[in-house]
Amino acid sequence: MSTPLNLDLQAKAELLAYLVVSQLLARALTGEWLSPLHTVESTGLWLLSNSGGADLIDRVRLSSYALELARRVAERTPTAQNRSVAASLITENLRIDFRVPIAREIYQACIDHLVDMGWI
């Protein structure tokens, strides 16, 4: 049975935020951004754990936006590259911790970006 392609704007923004946080965490832990392969794997993990579906074009577009947005966040909020700060963005079950103000800012930046790109 296939998963329906059901990501609305909020779900796309949450996936994008997850990918941005993943990029920031990778950068904080390794000094490097995620490789394209790891970004694809992260996208698949998020979709699987959220029972979401997105077509190939949506997945590629969201994945490609993540690095650009992560670089902007890192530039605007340098503490996001700190190991403890980056680690605080993710809960123990690998979900974004929206109790952390930076996580909410990242999510809002993702919504804004998607709206700017015409994904409304």
Rank of each mutant, 00 (worst) to 15 (best):
T3E: 13
T3Q: 08
T3P: 08
L5Q: 04
L5I: 08
L5W: 09
N6S: 03
N6M: 04
N6D: 09
N6Q: 03
Q10K: 01
A13W: 05
A13Q: 08
A13I: 05
L16I: 02
Y18G: 00
L19S: 03
Q23N: 06
A26Y: 10
R27K: 12
R27V: 02
E32A: 07
W33F: 14
W33G: 00
P36G: 07
H38R: 10
T39I: 15
T39S: 08
S51N: 10
S51L: 05
L56G: 09
L56M: 12
D58N: 05
R59Q: 14
R61M: 14
S63D: 10
S63N: 10
Y65R: 09
E68Q: 06
R71A: 03
R72S: 14
R72Q: 06
A74W: 12
A74D: 04
A80T: 12
Q81E: 10
Q81R: 06
N82T: 05
S88I: 04
L89I: 08
I90C: 12
I90P: 14
I90W: 15
R95G: 12
D97L: 00
D97W: 03
F98V: 01
A103R: 06
Y107G: 03
I111Q: 12
H113S: 01
H113E: 15
H113I: 00
L114M: 10
M117T: 07
I120P: 02
